[in-house]
Design a protein around this nucleic acid. Structure first.
Length: 201
DNA sequence: CCCTGATTCGC
DNA sequence: GCGAATCAGG
């Protein structure tokens, strides 16, 4: 694919709209996001912030040797975007968060709890925020229900059911970045210590 | 891990 | 001019 006028135009338009390079690349087809970014630079519209003529914002006075031809400014624009990501519970899962339950993971743990035996303490309802709990019940229906062997690096490892039964599986939904669980389960797994204390009888 | 843009440099 | 590879950051 080549950069026809049409394609360049669409590129400009989308870039102006704040679309990401990958989105633009997907839309255009036949090009990667790298190609898009490269083109954007060559077109000289890398800095999505308005050029504003020669307005010179106080230079940081950096002892630089290389004199670049065009703009050198870095981050200046947050980019509006139509990102629907709300980040539900920012308060939750902070540095002071605690895991209410140990990761079931265990690279190799065969001996499971004998059937009918009392299960280890499950996160009980009184310890979890209603919303988080509701969310879990919601997504648990959509769970992939993976077996231990089916778990991968990026599948939610939240255990569901009685390990001593066939009715036992792992959530398996896409994990949250970094975490071992999906968004919903991260919500019940990690809680600020404060909220734990508060909920405490 | 997923993603973002920025830069480099052989083509 | 092009864009994959790489870098830097979230």
């Amino acid at each position: 694919m080549s950069w026809t006028d049409e394609r360049v135009e669409l590129l400009k338009k989308m870039w102006a709209e704040g679309q990401s390079a990958s989105q633009i690349a997907k839309e255009l087809g036949g090009v990667t996001r790298n190609a898009v970014i490269g083109k954007v630079h060559r077109l000289g519209l890398s800095n999505r912030t308005a050029p504003a003529g020669g307005a010179a914002p106080a230079a940081p006075a950096a002892p630089v040797k290389e004199a670049k031809p065009a703009a050198k400014e870095t981050k200046a624009k947050p980019a509006p975007k139509a990102d629907p990501a709300p980040a539900a519970e920012p308060a939750r899962e902070t540095a002071t968060a605690v895991e209410t339950r140990p990761a079931p993971l265990g690279p190799s743990r065969k001996p499971i709890v004998p059937a009918g035996q009392p299960l280890p303490p499950q996160p009980s309802a009184n310890e979890i925020s209603p919303e988080a709990l509701a969310k879990v019940n919601e997504i648990e229906k959509k769970a992939k229900k993976l077996s231990l062997m089916d778990l991968t690096e990026r599948t939610c490892k939240w255990p569901v059911g009685d390990p001593a039964t066939d009715d036992f599986w792992f959530c398996g939904l896409p994990v949250q970045q970094g975490k071992p669980y999906c968004e919903a389960h991260v919500g019940v797994a990690f809680q600020p210590m404060s909220s734990r204390r508060d909920r405490r009888r």
